[in-house]
């Protein structure tokens, strides 16, 4: 039996301690927002926070989370359902396309802004380079992080020539 806290709730799960956090969250706790992408910590789709630190849940065994606090995409909005600044910026910039990688992107961006409320482009690149987006929304991700940080304001561009 492994005791952990997930999105503020205490849970006990009966699993092999070597099981990656990803599969415990998805299958045992039935929270599907965290995604499986590669299984080897190369794509970031599975990113969750462990005591506030972003980790690749596909390659981190649940034993690592014993007695710690896991935060997933389902746990970053306010309790009243108000979206976090990062989530709201993601909507403002219309970041997601297929959306599959976005839970991981948002978790990485959230961790970045917690540690560094005003990141430079290079710092954004460094923090987000572990998250792959096959729909290629990197430009929008960068812009959304700046908007969430208050560095930039949402803009509308004239695009019809």
């Amino acid at each position: 039996m492994i005791n952990l806290t997930i999105n503020g709730q205490e849970k006990a799960v009966e699993v092999d301690p070597a099981t990656p956090i990803l599969w415990v969250v998805r299958e045992n706790l039935e929270m599907n927002g965290t995604k499986f992408g590669c299984g080897i910590a190369q794509c970031g789709a599975c990113t969750v926070h462990l005591d506030g630190q972003p980790v690749r849940s596909c390659s981190t065994p649940i034993s690592q989370a014993e007695g710690k606090s896991i935060t997933t995409i389902e746990g970053i909005a306010d309790e009243d359902g108000t979206l976090s600044k990062v989530q709201q910026a993601w909507i403002d910039v219309q970041v997601p396309q297929c959306g599959y990688c976005q839970s991981g992107q948002i978790m990485s961006a959230t961790a970045l802004l917690t540690k560094n409320p005003s990141p430079t482009d290079a710092q954004i690149d460094a923090a987000m380079a572990g998250n792959v987006c096959r729909c290629g929304m990197y430009g929008r991700i960068r812009q959304a992080i700046k908007i969430a940080a208050g560095i930039e304001q949402p803009t509308t561009k004239e695009t019809i020539a």
């Binding site: 990656p20 299984g39 080897i40 034993s63």
Partner: peptide
């Protein structure tokens, strides 16, 4: 050996 689960994916 148990904690090596952190490493064994790679």
């Amino acid at each position: 050996k148990a904690a090596f689960a952190n490493c064994s994916a790679c």
